[in-house]
């Protein structure tokens, strides 16, 4: 069942269109990703859903509520982790949670919440003395303190080291398993692929596709890449004439052969016939990045 419905959302800033006719629905209990490059309109989209901005067009329903008209009620049901939002330097973690808990009718037990987020021993620590990962977890705690039905997490792991990032991912899965619908805004392919049940791909304010990670990948399925460094000069034409090969690119000493079917076998056979050794041979399956390039014509991180 859909808990969020966005239909033809339009938002313009100073005549610049930030979001241009985006529609999608988020089902109850899923982790829904909003993926796209920086400046694609992801944050604007979710901030309209949160009721922080008034859309210039389209309709939004969150759990049956209109984010602008039913502001107060929406805020009680929606937990928000904002991109770049801090707390006062000297507030203690426990104080911040206790304060925010007092804003809601039926808040979660903040001590239990801190323990779940691995911050039990930080309750008396001042905010300014926390590490980046800890601040991010406090931010998640504040988003969950009101026992929301939906949690919107914006650029959750930006600036975190790889270990903290993986810990945070586990946390997001726990949130979903506890029955909270999660909307995850990210520009990390790996994050979206690992966590999301479904992903909305957004580029330049427009919705490119909505599908499961596997569904998106299957749109470019069958495509693979073989990457290697030929030990001796190799006539590229020998490869391009193979039926399995769609194209060949040269990256310095490396060759990247893209194609379908039994690509690896076809390429290695040619090499063997010409007695050329392939060093550093790797085979790569198509992933979300390839899907993104195929769907938008450009790379995600540029």
């Amino acid at each position: 069942m859909a808990i969020i419905e966005v239909v033809d959302l339009v938002k313009t800033y100073d005549r610049k269109v930030a979001v241009d006719g985006v529609s999608f629905t988020v089902d109850e209990g899923e982790i829904f990703g909003i993926l796209g490059p920086n400046g694609a309109g992801k944050t604007t989209t979710v901030e309209c859903v949160e009721g922080l901005h008034t859309p210039d067009g389209g309709t939004i329903r969150v759990d049956g509520l209109d984010p602008r008209r039913d502001r107060a009620e929406l805020r009680a049901r929606l937990g928000v982790q904002l991109q770049q939002s801090e707390l006062p330097d000297r507030i203690r973690v426990g104080e911040a949670l206790d304060l925010y808990a007092s804003f809601y009718r039926d808040p979660a037990d903040w001590r239990e919440l801190l323990a779940r987020l691995g911050l039990a021993d930080r309750a008396k620590t001042e905010y300014r003395k926390l590490s980046g990962g800890q601040k991010q977890r406090v931010s998640i705690a504040l988003a969950l303190i009101g026992k929301p039905k939906v949690a919107v997490l914006d650029e959750l792991t930006t600036g975190l080291d790889p270990q903290a990032r993986r810990d945070t991912w586990d946390l997001v899965e726990q949130i979903r398993d506890a029955g909270v619908t999660v909307v995850l805004v990210t520009h990390f392919m790996e994050e979206a692929e690992r966590l999301c049940d479904r992903i909305a791909l957004i580029d330049a304010g427009r919705l490119v596709a909505v599908d499961s990670p596997a569904g998106l990948v299957s749109r470019v399925d069958g495509e693979q890449r073989v990457r290697f460094r030929p030990a001796a000069p190799l006539d590229v034409a020998l490869l391009t004439e193979l039926p399995e090969v769609s194209h060949v690119e040269r990256h310095g000493p490396q060759l990247v052969v893209t194609g379908t079917g039994n690509l690896l076998h076809a390429v290695t056979s040619v090499l063997a016939r010409n007695q050329i050794v392939a060093a550093d041979l790797r085979i790569e399956q198509a992933g979300l990045d390839d899907a993104f390039i195929r769907l938008t014509g450009r790379k995600l991180t540029e």
Partner: peptide, 11 residues
């Protein structure tokens, strides 16, 4: 610092 903004996401 976004303290006010965060407040505005609560009731």
């Amino acid at each position: 610092k976004g303290v006010l903004r965060r407040f505005s996401t609560t009731p």
